[in-house]
Amino acid sequence: MIIRYERNGKVKHGWQVANEKKVRVIEGDIYKQDERKPVMTGLELPIDELRLLAPCTPSKVVCIGVNYKDHAIEMGKELPAEPLMFIKPSTTVVGPGEAIVYPSLTENLHYEGELAVVIKKTATRIRADEAEDYILGFTCAIDVTARDLQQRDGQWTRAKSFDTFCPLGPAIAPKLDYNNLRIVTKVNGEVRQDSNTKQMVFKVPELLEAITAVMTLLPGDVVLTGTPSGVGQLHPGDEISVTIEGIGTITNRVVTES
């Protein structure tokens, strides 16, 4: 799996075999296929010496609302006829272990565990049957929402866009059966969401076709594919984790805005 890390002030990508404690350094651009394409070096580093970062640096995060059947039932909403899109800015992104800041502007902070798609190359007006060629891999995401602001505003930009509202990680898994993955969210060790990507209304290829009909996705951009049932509140001091089969677990703690 692909990780992104900081060591001695330098940021690089590396390759970690699942459950191993060493990372092989990658040189070059993980998104390039020309002379700058990534090369797996022979240098291995202990993972304990590295600070894991968000595995990619998207120009934007495109999100899909009400895309799980069980979540639609939970919210009392009909299944959408087409994907419901919104955007989180790049400044929402943080990595594993980084703080989620509880803003003073909200009194009702919510979590949503999600499967995230990382884009490999520029995608404009692609067809669903072409989607595989544009996917670098998959990672875990936490879509944090100021629910009271969302309800007050009637649209979602402010509620979804505070800094730290999109933890990503811990790694990018290049190959997964994304149509059948268990996704589990825990808060302080208690299971709050336990579902499967089989519940998705619109599958990943359909989402990429619909999104790229509207906007161009750039290398490193991220698509959040929706959340299952079980969404709920977060409070300062809470620890939240999202585990997705075949990827791993991202864990973050909620802190009060200083």
Rank of each mutant, 00 (worst) to 15 (best):
P219M: 03
V191G: 08
L207G: 09
L218G: 06
G220Y: 07
G220K: 06
P228L: 04
T216H: 08
I211K: 00
L181H: 06
K203C: 10
T216P: 06
G220C: 10
M215A: 14
A213S: 14
P219E: 04
N179T: 15
E206K: 14
A171F: 13
R192V: 15
T225I: 08
L207R: 07
G189V: 14
T225F: 04
V201S: 03
T185N: 01
G169H: 06
L218E: 15
V204D: 01
G226W: 01
T197L: 02
M215V: 15
L224T: 12
V201M: 02
T197I: 02
T225V: 06
P205D: 04
P170M: 09
T197A: 01
T216F: 09
T225D: 04
L208R: 08
P170D: 09
V231Y: 03
L168S: 02
A173M: 07
S229K: 12
N180M: 11
P170H: 10
G220V: 09
P174T: 14
S229E: 13
A210R: 14
L176D: 05
K198V: 10
P170W: 07
G230F: 03
I172S: 04
D194W: 04
R192Q: 13
N179M: 13
P219C: 05
V231T: 15
E190L: 12
L176H: 05
D194Y: 03
I183H: 01
T197N: 06
L207I: 15
D221K: 02
C166A: 14
L218M: 15
E209D: 12
T185S: 11
P170Y: 09
S229W: 03
D221Y: 05
V184A: 05
M200W: 06
T216V: 13
G169P: 07
L181T: 07
K175E: 15
D194R: 04
T212R: 00
Q193F: 08
V214Y: 10
P167E: 05
P167M: 08
E206D: 14
P219S: 10
M215K: 05
T227E: 00
P228V: 00
I183Q: 03
E190Q: 14
V231C: 11
L168R: 03
R182A: 13
P174Q: 05
A210V: 09
A210L: 12
A173V: 01
F165I: 06
T216Y: 07
I183C: 08
G189A: 12
S229I: 02
K175N: 13
L181W: 05
I172W: 01
L224R: 00
Q193W: 08
A171V: 15
E190H: 11
K175V: 15
K203A: 09
V214A: 12
E190V: 15
L217A: 11
G230T: 08
N196R: 08
S195T: 02
L217W: 10
L181G: 07
G230D: 05
Q199G: 13
T185D: 01
T227K: 02
A173T: 14
R182V: 11
E190I: 14
A210G: 11
T227H: 00
G230I: 04
Y178P: 01
A171S: 15
E209F: 08
Q193I: 08
K203G: 08
Y178D: 12
F202E: 04
Q199R: 13
V204T: 13
T197M: 04
P219D: 07
L208G: 07
V231S: 12
A210F: 15
L207T: 11
P228R: 02
I172E: 03
V223S: 03
A213P: 04
V204N: 02
L207C: 12
G226P: 00
